[in-house]
C-alpha cells in the first residue's frame, strides 16, 4: 500500500511548525511533508511524494513569497496526478476575490482563516482525507482508526466480500 501524503505549505517557520504539530495525529497513517514556498512544494510533490505514493491533502498558505498559494493549488488541479488531492487554503486575509478564484479554479475544498482552531483544522483534514480514500482506495480498513470511521464502515459494508471478487 503506497502512502497518502499530507503536504503543508507555509513560509513562516513557526506557523508551519504549528500546522504540522496540529496534524501530527494523522501521521500514524499519513506522512506529512512541508515546504516554505510554492516552488519547493512543487519539487516535494514531484521528487518526494509522487515517486513514493499519492498526494492526499494540501494545506496551503495563501500569501507565499513569489508564487502565491492559490496559483500553486490551481496548478495542482491541472495536473492529473495531483488533481484528486484535496486542497485547503489557509489564509490570514480573507480576500473575497482570491477565494472565489481558488474555489472556481482549484476546486478548493475548504478555506480556513488564521488563527485557526486546531480541532476545526483536524476535522476539515479528516473529512477531506476520508473523501480522498473513499474515492481513491479500495482497502479502507487501515484508515478506520484515523479517519471518519462511520463513513468508511458504511462503504465497507457495501463492498463485496473478498471472496466474491
Amino acid at each position: 500500500m503506497s502512502p497518502i501524503y499530507i503536504l503543508c505549505v507555509e513560509d513562516e517557520p513557526e506557523v508551519l511548525a504549528a500546522v504540522v504539530r496540529d496534524l501530527a495525529p494523522f501521521e500514524v497513517r499519513f506522512p506529512i511533508e512541508s515546504a516554505a514556498t510554492a516552488a519547493e512544494a512543487r519539487r516535494v510533490v514531484h521528487e518526494v511524494i509522487l515517486p513514493r505514493g499519492k498526494l492526499g491533502v494540501v494545506v496551503c498558505d495563501h500569501l507565499l513569497p513569489g508564487e502565491d498559494g492559490v496559483s500553486f493549488l490551481v496548478a495542482l488541479q491541472r495536473d492529473p496526478r495531483t488533481a484528486p488531492a484535496r486542497k485547503i487554503l489557509l489564509t490570514a486575509q480573507a480576500g473575497l476575490a482570491a477565494t472565489v478564484q481558488a474555489l472556481n479554479q482549484a476546486q478548493l475544498k475548504h478555506y480556513l482563516a488564521k488563527p485557526w482552531d486546531p480541532e476545526e483544522l483536524r476535522a476539515v483534514v479528516r473529512r477531506q482525507l476520508t473523501d480522498f480514500v473513499l474515492e481513491q482506495e479500495t482497502d479502507l480498513y487501515p484508515y478506520l482508526t484515523v479517519l471518519e470511521a462511520d463513513r468508511l464502515t458504511e462503504k465497507i459494508r457495501q463492498q463485496p466480500l473478498p471472496a466474491d471478487r
Binding site: V15, Q93, K114
Partner: peptide, 21 residues
C-alpha cells in the same frame, strides 16, 4: 488595516498554537 491584520495573524496563530501545545 488589511496588512496589519495579515501581519499580526501569523504570529498570533503561532503564539496561540504554541500556548495550546
Amino acid at each position: 488595516v488589511a496588512g496589519i491584520a495579515h501581519e499580526i495573524n501569523n504570529p498570533v496563530a503561532s503564539l496561540a498554537r504554541a500556548a495550546d501545545a
